[in-house]
Design a protein around this nucleic acid. Structure first.
Lengths: 129, 129
DNA sequence: GTATATGCAAACAATTTGCACGCCT
DNA sequence: AGGCGTGCAAATTGTTTGCATATAC
């Protein structure tokens, strides 16, 4: 399939590149509409899928919603159980997983998703619940 | 809220205890109907939520579907990109994450979800795609 | 007896898709 | 010109919920 470089896709990618909040499709939709008022939500979803297939973005699943991230290098996520924010966690902050045992058993690990749940520094400050 | 020990909940829990396929709510529903033919899907969902709140089961999110697991001890999951199967990975097979750096930064880790993606031993055997 | 749980069906929320038209290449 | 991409709206999928009745305690 020959792929075209459409304005819609460019803008969607730009928006995703310029945020670190790991937005939902809906958030992206409302941002894009500030630039392309008549874009449709279906187009947003279709382009997110294309960008993901191209490896330009990753999809992270948050409950029954998807979130998207233009950071595609290896890193982890931390989700605050309290406010729902998703933080990037540097790879170096978490020691590497030892995969050799798995590989010996025939599991071929292409990628992994690691999500930590808890309270983030901001919510910790409040100090209750 | 005072909780009752209903037959429906018992059966749902039994079924989940006796499988390791990490089933969806729908699969559980069809299994329970073999025993309680007129149970409703809503009841299955409601009881899965209750069991989760009690800590008797865990919920693992697989794309936009939830899967459930009566194994609540610390372990990881491996999902095969090819067949979609979810395998239990023993904690000992993966070296522990180093959390102290995160804790120092104020992140309070309650729990984490780790999902590895790739090809499972069965699908590896086929050797293509 | 009384409040929680159930069955049913309708409501919801997130995402996908069919179709006719539009616009990149 | 031709086909991929779009906008729109309807359809799908997974899950939740309102309500009247049933049941555990």
């Amino acid at each position: 399939m020959q792929r075209r470089n459409t304005y819609q896709r460019q803008i969607i990618y730009e928006i995703l590149k310029n945020t670190d909040i790991h937005p939902t499709a809906d958030w992206i939709y409302s941002e894009v509409r500030k630039i392309i008022p008549n874009i449709s939500l279906g187009t947003v979803y279709r382009n997110l899928k294309v960008l993901k297939e191209e490896g330009a973005i990753i999809e992270i699943t948050d409950g029954k919603q998807s979130r998207f991230d233009a950071r595609v290098d290896k890193h982890f996520h931390f989700k605050c159980n309290n406010c729902g924010s998703i933080y990037d966690i540097e790879s170096s902050e978490v020691s590497n997983l030892e995969m050799s045992a798995l590989e010996k058993k025939g599991f071929n690990v292409d990628s992994m998703e690691i999500t930590l749940y808890g309270e983030c520094p901001n919510c910790n400050k409040a100090g209750d619940n």
